[in-house]
Design a binder for these strands. Structure first.
Lengths: 135, 135
DNA sequence: CTTGCCCCTGACGTCAATGTCAGGTTTTAG
DNA sequence: CTAAAACCTGACATTGACGTCAGGGGCAAG
């Protein structure tokens, strides 16, 4: 279904820029088996436009606090949503999903804590203001 | 309003256990000016029960991705919600709040991405199962 | 007093994702 | 052709929040 005919094969610098990451990171992702590249005769990496999305996806998972190793375990089932790894991968994903949810809840708590702080800080400031404006 | 009369002054080991962090972390927090302690004649740290909540609060902010430095900037206004730092602190908090919200949104996106993955993985698996069960 | 446990400081180790530098090749622009 | 820009590998540096170890006290119980 996917036609890879005239897709502009870009080099690492372009992918880096378009995906918003450093060249170093892309090489690192490849080292961690999160990303692959075709190589030119001289050894330069070439990518297709699809990799942009993949990199962004990886970034999202990183932002979610997943480690390279964990991401590497999950990505195979993005690539080929097949194989017997199905069940194990589903478990793994479910587990990570839970972890993520927990983490999100923590962050929301932290934000709430900040909100509380801000509320009392504001109240205090307004009180000061009222006082300085004369009783 | 707060009476600090007979409050059990605990040592670092107890605080660590009750707040759910390592002794090392507590010393680190002190080093980072996030936490203070009174010292006994022999130099041992003593804390009151209040510090338990403070440590938990610090943990929440850490979980929210704030750095020690940032937390250190915010804590003064927890301690004394006063001073002229009010406005600056409010700005700072508001800024961190935004950062947190952004981060939370990213995490939710990551989770959504995982959900999508799981959905398609499940679909694929069920398809396989249907096939193996005979057409 | 000795044993044992908790505490102290100071310093080095760790881990993960990146930065950065060195030294060399390839591609591109003029 | 030539210089600049981009790429390559390999390796060491960095940052943050700790872990861990060394070497040395304090203090209760037996």
């Amino acid at each position: 279904m996917t036609v890879d005919s005239g897709e502009k094969r870009m080099r690492i610098g372009e992918l880096a820029e378009r995906a918003g990451v450093s060249v170093r990171s892309l090489r690192y992702y490849e080292e961690q088996k999160l990303l692959t590249s075709t190589r030119s005769a001289s050894g330069q990496r070439h990518y297709t436009d699809d990799e942009i999305e993949r990199v962004r996806f990886i970034q999202r998972l990183y932002a979610g606090g997943l480690s390279s190793r964990t991401i590497a375990e999950l990505l195979p089932c993005v690539d080929s949503p097949s194989e017997e790894n199905s069940d194990a991968a589903l478990d793994r994903m479910s587990q990570e999903r839970d972890r993520l949810s927990t983490h999100i809840a923590e962050l929301v708590q932290a934000r709430d804590a900040l909100d509380q702080l801000m509320t009392s800080a504001r109240a205090y400031r307004d009180q000061l203001q009222a006082a300085s404006a004369g009783v």
